[in-house]
Nucleic acid binder design. Structure first.
Lengths: 203, 203
DNA sequence: GCATAGACTGACTGTACGTTCATTTGACTG
DNA sequence: CAGTCAAATGAACGTACAGTCAGTCTATGC
């Protein structure tokens, strides 16, 4: 690798890291080329020596971030462990990696889906609607617990996870990771969720 | 209610519906006041008679959309059914309601987290990283199936849902719906996921 | 049928921000 | 040390878009 290529790679890395820090701090909406340039301690023009457009820069920053995290998960795997232990470690590793990338992930997960600050009038209203819905689902679960129909589990936690599976099913369709109709996932989610929390999960 | 109030409510509803249609079609980024005005067949200025800022408009449109969906879920509930059946119906109802609001939800779930078109160079690259990761997790699950350690389940589906639970845990913290450290969720997810798919889920 | 209020309009303004490019810097060469 | 050239700079430009407001339209009351 020539000297120029080393410098180029160093600059690119520096700019991408800066972009990710800016995204974490200001959210997707608030990420401007000026801010990235300031954070990377280079002039605005310099960024355009390495990236054609702002979009290209932001996309590269996000994809590179995900790539690094995926690589870290892969590196944590030990195929020689017994299968269940391997899955357990896989989950724990992902948790660890996620939490050390919290700020970055935040912009992908909430920050920009709505560009809402949690501590603001609309943010609180949004959360009131959402929390109300979760409370309702949790109350149905609590009712089932009281009837001994499912095992004792934190109903708020379970309600939230159920919601994640439901929106996840839709997301999976939208990402074209599954082409069967949405309805056919319903039974699969029921099965996964219920067998996970039912008192008598054995057939 | 006076005549003026009726007209006002009608206008507000009309504008909010238009905003949601624009959001669905152009994504959060591409939602401009001009487009909403055109879609609602009113002048730009009219929108500012009912909403102080664009942010207020967008927030109202999103929150109203969520509110309507939450109300629909609530209306579908029948507390007289047995608990497990009630949960089952709850899940199915949410699936139904989600799919009839697909376009709207899309902007909240993916469209704008990254403002990426799925069918584009960066979109494909993004998906390649993500799909690669899912393939890896699925292969671990497949391995466990082959060893008879977990029950037969679509490994791609399970891998995706596991990922949803993991990012869900983070999202739950970020939304301030749980304050305990992220790590303490790890065991709960392991439990929910494994007991859901393990061959021998009974203690 | 005229007057008045206020709902509605859309051309206009200000600005934030992505992108460009003429100029400067500084590392390397002979 | 002078000459060369790519890398870097940041002022300037163009555009898209949120927000404004002077003017028009329409309904209601007299």
């Amino acid at each position: 690798m020539t000297k120029e290529e080393v410098i180029k790679e160093y600059r690119v890395r520096e700019i991408l890291d800066a972009a990710r820090r800016v995204m974490a701090r200001y959210g997707m909406q608030g990420t401007t080329v000026d801010r990235v340039a300031e954070e990377a301690k280079v002039a605005k023009g310099t960024i355009y020596l390495y990236f054609d457009t702002k979009d290209e820069l932001v996309n590269a920053a996000v994809i590179e971030g995900l790539r690094e995290m995926a690589a870290e998960v892969l590196a944590s795997d030990d195929p020689s462990k017994p299968p269940l232990e391997r899955i357990r470690r896989l989950i724990l590793a992902q948790f660890r990696i996620q939490s050390s990338n919290q700020d970055f992930l935040k912009t992908l997960i909430i920050g920009n889906s709505l560009d809402i600050e949690l501590e603001s009038q609309p943010g609180r209203e949004f959360m009131r609607v959402y929390a109300g819905h979760l409370d309702f689902v949790a109350s149905v679960l609590q009712d089932a617990i009281d009837h001994g129909a499912i095992r004792r589990i934190d109903p708020q936690f379970a309600a939230f996870m159920l919601g994640e599976m439901l929106t996840g099913s839709l997301r999976r369709r939208l990402l074209k990771l599954a082409s069967s109709p949405l309805e056919s996932d319903a039974e699969a989610v029921v099965e996964l969720f219920l067998k996970g929390i039912a008192t008598i999960p054995c057939d």
